[in-house]
Design a protein around this nucleic acid. Structure first.
Lengths: 222, 222, 222, 222
DNA sequence: GATGAATGAGTTTTCATTCAT
DNA sequence: AATGAATGAAAACTCATTCAT
């Protein structure tokens, strides 16, 4: 997994100490964004990372650049989770879905993405990752539909939305209890995913409606 | 019960224009909190309400007072929804749950509660409302368990957590699409609520664990 | 003379204390710009004006707004000087030119205009003043040409450029000496203005060339 | 004498690449000082020169050292111009003055001296150059007075002040137009220099008054 | 009761300068 | 000799809060 590594494309390799600082800044930002939103003072992020504020600015010229990188790192992890789940899809598609969504809950501390407010990233790397995530989840669902292991009316977008809903912090709740509640909620949801469902869902947003937002916005809330 | 009216206990009746200003401030605060969190500049709330910042301060001596009132208004509405749903619980408990949760989605714009960051209210009025909400939901679930219309392992806290998860804004998504996705998610969840479930849920947080948070914090995330 | 008064068009009248602060800020800015250029710290201007920096920002939302107003005030004064000089033009056009240029030297402390660096104002009020200044000077020159009191090849733009050259501070020189040197230089220049000149000047910039800059830029250096 | 070469006295000869960097830094500083004053960020000078900021610091330990060198280079050029003009002084003193002042205009881009703000250099080399410049100009004027080619009341300080006035940038004016206006202004001034003048000039600053500033300050504005 | 105004205390952003590679 | 990196200090700008009208 290469989430925090600057993309090899054009970035001149960083000196060892600079790379360490960069990673600490990203970790601090991830935590601070989760706790207080992306409007949290950059001062505080620098302090938590143990670097001077000017060092933060050297690496990330403005808040958006920092947010973008945290988003990209998070999306990388999500893609890893989706692919790992996909490997078991042929055997048991429902278990694959569970594995993905439970993995999201378990790793939610690393998924500190812009949860509320603030401008969304339009980083092309993020777009690319989102498309790969959606495609991977769609493959899992296709398996499930073929083997009658999953209801037919669920789409990849539904799984992404579900992940977004259950991963966000329930502020003011101790993390352990928030995870317990999310897992219980997920359990009921998974039971509802089996094919013998009784309820007709409203039609999902069309591809056109979503595509404008899928990449730059919606999945950012994962 | 009318949410935005100051509790009749001790509040001196407001002049007509003052009451109008107060209502506009609360509406602006609700929207701003939803969009940007409770740390949003008070300036901006005043501007959106069309009043001077000093007028806002006259009505609400500090940010907390404003947050508290928005929370109380929101909880009042939640209680209204729960009671309305409870009236149909004997006939069809699952439909009552659905009515409650769908009502939460439909009214989510009015539920701008402190969703992330910021200090939580400890208003006694809010505590009281929360207990009434939990009791009302518990009554519905008891009906459902008795008539075998609902799985037995679901608690009022689960419903509150579910409401919290599905009502929060998916920022950057057009509201209509966010609602559609939430409703589809809810549909699957409701299918999973029926008694013929297959999955065992992890044990819920104990009453002791929750009680510390239930009132002042957890349900504030609704 | 109404230089420092906000244009009556749309400005809501200021409270007395606010108007006093505004005038002090402008006076401090004028002096500071002259001494240190328009990039001088706004902190320092606020301190010299005896107000808080936030008060400065309330009146002038950014540096440009402050620079613009100083420019406009300066142009107003220049127009006043030109008009006063114009009143004697029929009697003695050369004396009118002298009166204008010497007046510029004598009042140069009030003409603190953006002298070097920094973005130039494009305030429409400033443009208007510039055109009036140029027109007034042109009238004086026309008188002089008619009465053979002035050489024919001088234009209003030349007078504006001359004013710009002689009014700017000679930094590091005591003001009195700078004024003496400017006045002596002006004396020679005025002798060169008489009609029995011997030298052919290079052609002036065309109206088209200048008009793009006359208003927003060139005369800003006065 | 080549302006940018470090004085041969004690400087260890630079490696070829280092000498190139040094020249680029000085050229960039000259331009930046002219455009934005001597308070311009050193970062920007380094960037324009295509070198790292630390390289700039290696060559010039602080801003003053850089300013001093730019001043000395400029004064060297001024002295060259004065001497070249002096060679024709016997034949035609007025033409010599013209040659000097027009040369200043033509070379003004290379004369980026501290024009406004910032600490003045007290480099002894600069002092020396200034005295030589003043002496050379005085020689020219003496010729002119002897041959009745120039008015008698003009001093070397007047010529230096005139050069200072006409060489400074008129910011925001295209360089070509600024030069045209300066040349036209100079034409009138030169006509005023002829002996049949009509106007009495105010007395010049005494030598004592000027001498305190002549070297360290006044001519720095050239 | 409402508002224009002022200000102190942040937060963001930039810059000069030094250090280690 | 040159550079990437780091940092403290300053400057730009914003915000919560109080005061006087």
């Amino acid at each position: 997994m290469t989430a925090s590594t600057p993309s090899g494309r054009s970035a001149p390799r960083l000196r060892a100490d600079a790379a360490r600082n960069r990673a600490q800044i990203l970790a601090a930002a991830r935590a601070a964004f989760r706790e207080s939103g992306t409007a949290v003072p950059l001062d505080e992020i620098a302090r938590r990372a143990g670097v001077n504020i000017a060092t933060l600015y050297r690496r990330f010229p403005d808040r958006d650049a920092l947010v973008s990188q945290v988003v990209v790192d998070g999306f990388s992890l999500v893609l890893d989770l989706a692919r790992a789940a996909g490997r078991t899809a042929q055997t048991d598609p429902l278990a694959a879905v569970e594995s993905f969504l439970q993995g999201m809950i378990d790793n939610r501390e690393l998924l500190s993405l812009p949860l509320i407010g603030g401008p969304m990233t339009s980083d092309p790397h993020a777009r690319e990752l989102q498309q790969q995530i959606a495609a991977t989840l769609e493959d899992i669902l296709a398996e499930g539909r073929g083997s009658e292991a999953l209801r037919h009316d669920i789409t990849a977008v539904d799984l992404i939305a579900t992940a977004a809903l259950i991963c966000r912090p329930l502020p003011h709740l101790p993390p352990g209890q928030a995870a317990t509640l999310a897992t219980r909620h997920l359990g009921v949801f998974l039971d509802g995913l089996r094919p013998e469902h009784t309820r007709t869902l409203p039609p999902p947003p069309t591809h056109e409606e979503m595509s404008a937002h899928l990449v730059t916005e919606e999945t950012a809330d994962l």
